[in-house]
C-alpha cells in the first residue's frame, strides 16, 4: 500500500499528464465534428481490421457448423433430386408400358414395370431390389424379366419394394429347355462369371447344338413358356454321364439392369390349388 502511494507520488506528473491528455482528447473528439469523424472513421478502420482478422480466424471454427449445414442442405437437395428422378422414372415407365407390345406368350400374364434400385453381380448369392411392392401388385414368387431375358424371382415384398432372387444366385433353379425341343433341364448359376450359367440335368438323349437358344419351360406359374434365357455355348457330360450339362451365355446383362417387368400370372392361384390337391410335387422354378 505504501509502495503504491509512493508510486503515485513519484509518477504523479505522468499520471496527471495522462489524465489531462485523456480529458483533452475527450473534449476534442466530443466537440469537434471533424476530429470526431476522423476518429470514428479511423476507429472503424481499426475495428474493421480487427473484426476481419478475428472473422478469418473464427471462420475456421465455424467450418464444422457450415459443413453440417451444407451436408443437410445437400441431403435435402439429393432427396428432392431422387423424388424428381422417381417422378421421371414413373413417366418413363408409363412410356415403356405403352411401347411394349402385348406378347402372345404373356396373354395370360400381366406385368408390372419396376426399376432396379439395388443390384449386385459379384457376390456368391446375388439379390436385386425393385421399387415396386405389394401396393403395386407384386407378390412373392412372381417372375422378373427384362427386355432381354430372365432376371429372377421375387422373394420378399414390402409395401413399396421387392427383393428379387437374382438368376445369379445358386438358390434359384429355373426349369428351362432348348428351344424347339421339350427336354427340360435346370438352369443354375455356379458363381463367378455373371454372363453365363449352367443348364443341368438335361437328359442325355436331348438334342442340342451350340448356339441353340434356351427358353423357359413354362412348367411353373412363375414364368410363362418361351421366355428367352440364353444361348448354349458349350455342352459337356455330367460326371454320372446320364445327363448333359450345358454352359449357357445369358441374354440378360445383369450389370446394367434398370427397368424390368414383374410377371403376374392370373392362373397362378388356380394352378397352385390344383397342384396342392395332388401329391405335393417338387417345386421347380
Amino acid at each position: 500500500m505504501r509502495n503504491l502511494i509512493n508510486f503515485f507520488f513519484r509518477y504523479s506528473a505522468w499520471i496527471l499528464f495522462i489524465i489531462y491528455v485523456v480529458a483533452s482528447c475527450f473534449l476534442l473528439f466530443r466537440n469537434n465534428p471533424y476530429q470526431q469523424h476522423v476518429y470514428l472513421t479511423s476507429a472503424n478502420t481499426v475495428s474493421a481490421g480487427v473484426y476481419s482478422a478475428s472473422a478469418s480466424l473464427t471462420a475456421y471454427f465455424n467450418l464444422k457448423d457450415i459443413n453440417e449445414d451444407l451436408q443437410r442442405r445437400n441431403a435435402d437437395l439429393e432427396l428432392e433430386l431422387l423424388n424428381m428422378r422417381g417422378t421421371l422414372a414413373a413417366y418413363k415407365e408409363k412410356d415403356y408400358d405403352n411401347t411394349v407390345k402385348p406378347d402372345t406368350t404373356l396373354a395370360r400374364y400381366s406385368y408390372v414395370i419396376a426399376h432396379v434400385i439395388n443390384n449386385s453381380v459379384n457376390k456368391s448369392h446375388n439379390y436385386i431390389t425393385l421399387n415396386k411392392g405389394e401396393l403395386d401388385g407384386v407378390k412373392p414368387e412372381m417372375g422378373v424379366v427384362d427386355q432381354n431375358g430372365i432376371v429372377g424371382i421375387v422373394n420378399l415384398t414390402g409395401p413399396h419394394s421387392a427383393r428379387v432372387i437374382s438368376l445369379l444366385n445358386p438358390n434359384l433353379r429355373l426349369s428351362c429347355k432348348v428351344k424347339g425341343h421339350n427336354h427340360v433341364g435346370s438352369l443354375v448359376w455356379e458363381g463367378g462369371d455373371y454372363t453365363s450359367a449352367i443348364l443341368e440335368e438335361l437328359p442325355k438323349h436331348a438334342e442340342f447344338e451350340e448356339g441353340d437358344t434356351i427358353i423357359t419351360s413354362g412348367y411353373s406359374t412363375v414364368f410363362p413358356e418361351g421366355v428367352p434365357v440364353g444361348v448354349v455355348t458349350k455342352g459337356m457330360r455330367d460326371h454320372d454321364e446320364n445327363f448333359y450339362t450345358l454352359k449357357v451365355r445369358l441374354f440378360t446383362d445383369f450389370s446394367t439392369l434398370s427397368t424390368v417387368r414383374i410377371i403376374g400370372d392370373s392362373m397362378k392361384e388356380e394352378i397352385d390349388s390344383l397342384e396342392r390337391t395332388s401329391i405335393e410335387p417338387n417345386k421347380k422354378f
Partner: peptide, 28 residues
Amino acid sequence: NQNWVLTVAFFTGLIIDIFSDTLGMCCL
C-alpha cells in the same frame, strides 16, 4: 511542481479553447 505546471497548462488551454471554439485542441 510538474503537477502544477500541467494543471496550469491544461486550464490555460481550456480557457483559450472555450473562447476560440476549438474545445480540446489547445488543451491537448
